[in-house]
Design a protein around this nucleic acid. Structure first.
Length: 720
DNA sequence: CGCACGTGGTTTTTT
DNA sequence: ACCACGTGCG
């Protein structure tokens, strides 16, 4: 049995490509991960490179783990010499090794986004900045954006008062981080990048070592990540990038699909290999995806095909309201389960998280087990953050963020006044809050706290990691605190889970890092933990389309296919926004193996108001022959509100699934929610109206033609 | 210190 | 409609 068995010709070409740079355009379901791991195994097996010479980078820990597992399964080698991980994980590894050259303390701590936000708030306070004008969230976005472009504060161009001040805040923030010995996620990348660009010796060392650099999901890389890859790849190394421009859906967080074209040009890539055979979906599903994505102008070009049969048509359902849509989903899922399909093999996808509420409600009342993805992860839970802050303070007393989080939690009589005094004292000395607190006399509670931390530090020195955590939980009073709280049982359970996590970390990590508090803390920051446990039960899967990327299911529901929601209205104003929405729809469609449901609703409750919808253009972009309408295709009557105000045009209230009301028309012969036809704008839905008689004006949603206000007297409308 | 109330925001997310 | 966060009072 050879590595290369059962590869199709394109996969084989990619796996066995002689030493050169390569771009692999890997369509959805085309065996991308298999190609990547087999390539690595093949390079090693053929003696082309030793495991030491491999660097493979992904975006998520899950993908990195899967890659390692599959390599191990293909080759009986020790994978330890390879660098396989996320961009952040690999940069962390490099910075830990060269912390001095990178200008970092040995035990630098990693902040997650939450920590970063509170750090920014502290900077704003310290700099006396108006938080109304310079909103912490915006500053976070600004700083991370700059870092991902590879710019320090000094390199950011400021052209007005606002941006000048923003740059000052960025500089102040970086200073604070340096003082406190903490780095944020983008800093890991930027610091590593700067280290390599400044330090020629190190750069050459890594360039000579990593002969083969392989990148997964290359379309998701940002500018800095690409520049980092360029630095790392020397004249004797080869970059092997795998990606799919049609699945680029993360522009909003800095991903730059342009990296694919840049790579092709910068490296004079001779070989672009297209993996176009899809092993996942039936023919009609694939045809729908191909037709849809062909509406995008800027593509590298690719057409998926399958050896499987056509399969079923896509089932389209039009619901009266979001409530009805949810009820229909629940019913249809029951049918699928009756037919013998596992719930875990069925997914309900939506564009935005808010949509899950009603669907959950319907599933709950039908008693259908489900699992919602997204939301709080293990290491992000409050009690865990507190526990980690204690550990951080043990490892690194300069960490002011950690200090502030737990100095008075559990409450121990240290109030705002005392903390202010500590902050003032620290400002004078330029030291950390912890140091200032240790020197402040006359505050018994405060002294007790610093003593407790110091005692923890000495008492836990040399202990097993698991024991360190246990001891901290006891000494800090965290467990006791939650024991006294009504809802504390879950939190205690999570804290105990943290002890297990520590034990597991030691067990699974080999080498010098294994029983090391700092590496455990880095692990906690970089791998925020699985979303929810509840494994084992066979549950229906609920998630956003974004979250579904990379997954596949027997049956998929793509819900809320309405203009304004999917494609989302806020994407309309963004450059490339609509095309990205379409790629998102492409991702959604290609998740399904055999059955695909598309649904939309006439009315939907959004931000407390009923919205009247027009079906998504994405449905129209799928050839009619591939669709099977489950509801009569009433292009005319898009919306049926519960009632309209008898006088005038005040917005109508929500309809409930249990009530199907006849919508009375008002004196004009039109009602809110009614579908109308306009000579120029085509089909639309009356959304709201104002004025009476000759002055009456109607607001009409013409879908892709936009929302228009028209005077009833002049607009040539006909009921559609 | 903890709760009650008011206010703003509300696309997508990993590290 | 709903949630998260911040302020002010008891």
């Amino acid at each position: 049995m050879s590595l290369l068995d059962n590869l199709n010709p394109e996969q084989l070409a990619a796996v066995t490509l002689p030493n050169q740079h390569a771009l692999i355009l890997a369509g959805a379901g085309s065996g991308k991960t298999r190609v990547l791991t087999t390539r690595i195994a093949w390079l090693i097996q053929t003696g082309n490179v030793s495991p030491n010479g491999i660097l493979a980078v992904t975006f998520t820990n899950k993908a990195a783990r899967e890659m390692l597992t599959r390599i191990s399964a293909q080759l009986p080698i020790n994978t330890r010499g390879m660098w396989v991980g996320t961009f952040h994980g690999l940069c962390n590894r490099m910075l830990r090794t060269h912390y001095r050259d990178a200008g970092l303390p040995q035990l630098f701590q990693i902040m997650d986004s939450q920590d970063q936000l509170s750090a920014i708030k502290r900077v704003l306070k310290a700099m006396n900045v108006d938080e109304e004008k310079f909103q912490p969230r915006q500053m976070q976005y600004f700083i991370n954006g700059a870092k991902e472009e590879g710019r320090r504060a000094a390199q950011v161009e400021a052209y007005d008062d606002f941006s000048r001040r923003s740059v000052e805040i960025y500089a102040g923030y970086d200073e604070q981080c340096q003082r406190e010995g903490v780095v944020d996620f983008s800093e890991l990348l930027l610091r590593s990048f700067e280290l390599l660009s400044r330090n020629e010796v190190l750069r050459d060392h890594y360039r000579n070592r990593f002969r083969h650099v392989l990148v997964d999901e290359f379309q998701d890389t940002n500018r800095l990540q690409y520049r980092w890859l360029k630095l790392l790849t020397g004249p004797n190394s080869f970059l092997f990038c795998v990606g799919d421009d049609d699945q680029s859906i993360y522009r909003f967080r800095g991903a730059n699909v342009g990296n694919m074209a840049d790579f092709e040009r910068d490296y004079q890539v001779q070989n672009i290999i297209r993996l176009e055979q899809n092993y996942r979906s039936h023919g009609h599903i694939l045809a729908a995806a191909n037709a849809l994505i062909s509406n995008n102008a800027r593509r590298l070009g690719k057409n998926l095909w399958t050896a499987a049969g056509e399969g079923e048509q896509l089932r389209v359902y039009e619901a009266q309201s979001d409530g009805y849509e949810a009820a229909w989903i629940a019913e249809e899922v029951q049918n699928l389960v009756k037919e013998g399909h596992a719930r875990r093999d069925i997914a309900v996808l939506y564009r935005s998280n808010a949509q899950s509420r009603l669907i959950e409600h319907a599933l709950f009342s039908q008693g259908i087990p489900y699992r919602v993805y997204g939301g709080l992860r293990f290491f992000e839970r409050l009690e865990i953050k507190h526990a980690l802050a204690y550990l951080r303070l043990i490892a690194s007393p300069d960490d002011d963020g950690a200090f502030l989080r737990v100095v008075n939690f559990p409450t121990r009589g240290i109030g705002t006044r005392t903390i202010e005094q500590v902050q003032d004292a620290a400002k004078v000395t330029g030291g950390s809050l912890f140091a200032a607190a240790s020197h402040l006399t006359g505050k018994a509670a405060l002294t007790a706290f610093t003593r407790m931390i110091e005692a923890l530090r000495t008492e836990t020195a040399g202990l097993q990691l698991k024991e360190v955590v246990e001891h901290m939980l006891d000494r800090s009073g965290l467990i006791r605190h939650y024991e006294n709280e009504k809802e504390g049982a879950d939190r205690i359970e999570n804290l105990n889970e943290l002890v297990n996590a520590a034990a597991l970390f030691v067990q699974e990590t080999e080498g010098e890092d294994s029983n090391n508090l700092a590496s455990f803390l880095a692990h906690a920051a970089l791998e925020s933990g699985e979303n929810q446990a509840a494994e084992g039960t066979d549950a229906l899967q609920l998630m956003t389309v974004h979250t579904a990327k990379g997954l596949e299911f027997f049956a998929v529901f793509v819900t809320g296919l309405e203009e304004g929601l999917f494609p989302h209205e806020q994407s309309a104003s963004e450059d490339d926004g609509l095309e990205e929405e379409r790629r998102l729809m492409y991702v959604a469609i290609t998740r399904a193996r055999e059955r695909l449901y598309l649904s939309f609703t006439q009315t939907r409750m959004l931000h407390g108001q009923t919205r009247y919808n027009v079906a998504s253009r994405f449905i129209d972009e799928i050839p009619a022959g591939l669709l099977k309408w489950l509801t009569p295709r009433l292009r005319g009557q898009m919306a049926q509100p519960a009632w309209s105000e008898p006088s005038g045009w005040a917005a109508s209230a929500a309809s409930t699934p249990s009530r199907k009301a006849a919508a009375p028309q008002n004196a004009h012969g039109y009602r809110i929610g009614q579908a109308v036809m306009h000579a120029k704008f085509g089909q639309g839905v009356i959304v709201s109206a104002e004025g009476q008689g000759a002055d009456a004006r109607l607001q009409i949603n013409f879908g892709r033609q936009g929302m228009k206000w028209l005077a009833l007297e002049y607009a040539k409308l006909t009921p559609a």
